[in-house]
Design a protein around this nucleic acid. Structure first.
Length: 218
DNA sequence: AAGCTCGTCAACCGCGGGTCG
DNA sequence: CCGACCCGCGGTTGACGAGCT
């Protein structure tokens, strides 16, 4: 329907773009005389070559008395976050709980701030990924070192074994058994792996869990 | 100093719902 | 019931200034 494009007479070439102080003045005068609403008739106001839609928007978002200008306060931010979690993108409903704020203002605020959060989360994510990769790399090196040590100790153990057997043959069995390399290393190692794996899982959980929490729910 | 990127905000667009003749 | 019109809403765009390279 053509009439939906802008309220008033559709064939008319409505003025678009930023409002001039003169236009604002005309609109304020008109609304103070005739009251809010009846926006399509506002468009017929002489000298105001704007669509009813445009007039309404200008009035609601900028000219209406009682509008708060300036930064959103932390309290307001808290309300916005809570209500958004509750209601989703119902900006006009959220705006009703914040006197002096418009839906457009809240919508813009949310968009820019959710973007910010998304970006910082992305940065954190990259940082943590790098950390985890580094940890993993270090762990692999640690494992390799230990394996090499084991190998060396086993080889040394073989030699010792040969000597021990020869010694035993000559002097009898030893009084006590020493723990094997595996006995020494395994409990420590497996604990390491488990705690490392736990920490990695925990990190991922915290990371993605946190990230998900930041996600805005539609 | 100039060009570029990013953030902010006003304004526009399209759609859906309500009302009225 | 139906179509025209009005209104409000949410998504998107574009202008502009500030900060950065």
């Amino acid at each position: 329907m053509v009439a939906r494009m802008g309220w008033g007479i559709p064939e008319k070439g409505w003025r678009k773009g930023p409002w001039t102080p003169e236009e604002d003045k005309l609109l304020i005068e008109y609304v103070s005389l005739h009251g809010e609403g009846r926006w399509s008739s506002v468009s017929r106001c002489p000298g105001l070559n704007r669509s009813g839609k445009s007039c309404r928007l200008r009035w609601v978002n900028y000219l209406r008395p009682g509008l708060k200008r300036g930064q959103i306060t932390p309290q307001e931010e808290g309300i916005i976050i809570e209500l958004h979690a509750l209601l989703g993108n119902k900006w006009s409903t959220i705006a009703r709980y914040l006197p002096g704020r418009t839906d457009n203002e809240i919508k813009n605020y949310w968009r820019t701030h959710s973007k910010k959060k998304e970006k910082s989360s992305q940065k954190q994510l990259e940082k943590r990924k790098a950390q985890i990769l580094k940890q993993e790399e270090e762990h692999q090196q640690h494992l390799q070192q230990q394996q090499q040590q084991q190998q060396q100790q086993l080889e040394a153990g073989d030699m010792n074994m040969v000597n021990t057997i020869a010694h035993e043959k000559m002097h009898g069995a030893p009084e006590m058994m020493y723990p094997t390399v595996e006995d020494q290393c395994l409990p420590v190692m497996s604990q390491d792996v488990v705690s490392w794996a736990d920490s990695v899982v925990e990190d991922y959980y915290r990371l993605w869990g946190g990230f998900w929490n930041l996600d805005d729910h539609p």
